[in-house]
Amino acid sequence: MDLLTAFIILTVLVAVFGSAKGKGKKRSRANTKRRNTRAPAKRIADREPKPDPYSMLYEHWKRVEAKEVAVPPWYHDPITEHQLNRLKEDGTKLPGRPLSKGQASDLIGLGEEVDPGQFEILKFFKVTGLPLKHGSLAAIEIDRLLSDPEKASKWINRPATPLQKEYYRYFNIPVPKGLTASEAEEKMGSDDLTDDQSDEWFAYSELIEELQDKDFREDYDLKKPSLPIIRQAIKQHLDQGTKLDALSADDLVDTILSIKPDLEKA
């Protein structure tokens, strides 16, 4: 091999391997760049404050102090001894400053469950998160929602529920066209029922609510039965001599499945 040929081969090898080495470094820099753009974002996300009931409550107090939220006059009274003892017994985290009577009530409410009436309003407005878990946060959110005239009108004029309409059917009362939930509530509260009628409706409505409750149905792998199916199942037991107040939702599961087997989850 002459000197010129050897020089040409050497030049080609240097060009090929040098290029490959350069490409490798470029990929390494690109990978490093990608890692550096991801890591800070993850660190920032880890530092982001997570929603907690106390921070939500403190934000509400700021709005109260700024008079952005209306509260009753007693809210600003000093905390009572009974409230202070209750907070200590509950092990509630207290801010490092004096509390008002209303603020103490809010803190106590953090440990209380959301009642069914509050839950119904929050569910209607598709509220999620902490207001569904803490009584005082539920009350604050509901006050905020219903202070909006448009939302208040939507709530007042919401359609009657299937169970409310079932009340009309149960007592052979024609269901008015366009019946609202508020109108049904007023009707159900003003009707002069006998004690027996009140007891019957209570037992009947309890059966319906339990059979349509998700947690109850999960215990039996039962899909949600319709009102006509529940009505039919109850009638079968009553025809056999069972008293309505002696009937439980558990008693009705097998009867419902015998009427409509496909309500059992596969």
Rank of each mutant, 00 (worst) to 15 (best):
T161W: 14
R144F: 04
K26R: 10
N85K: 15
F124C: 02
R38H: 11
R27N: 05
A266W: 04
T80S: 15
R35P: 04
V12N: 00
L145F: 11
S105Y: 14
M188F: 00
P98K: 09
D148N: 15
N36P: 01
N36V: 10
I259E: 03
T180M: 08
E210G: 00
P228T: 07
V69F: 07
T128G: 02
D251K: 14
A266G: 15
E48N: 12
L146P: 02
V175L: 04
V16R: 12
L99A: 04
K33E: 13
P53A: 07
I208Q: 01
S19M: 06
I230M: 07
Q236H: 00
D196W: 03
I142G: 04
L207T: 02
T194K: 06
R47V: 08
E59R: 14
R144M: 01
G91H: 02
V114K: 01
P95A: 04
L211C: 05
I142C: 06
G129Q: 03
P162R: 03
T242L: 12
R169I: 08
L110N: 07
T11W: 11
S248T: 14
Q212V: 03
I173Q: 11
A184Y: 07
T32G: 12
V127W: 09
E141N: 08
V14P: 00
Y75E: 01
Q164G: 07
L238I: 13
D90C: 11
D143P: 00
I259Y: 05
L99M: 11
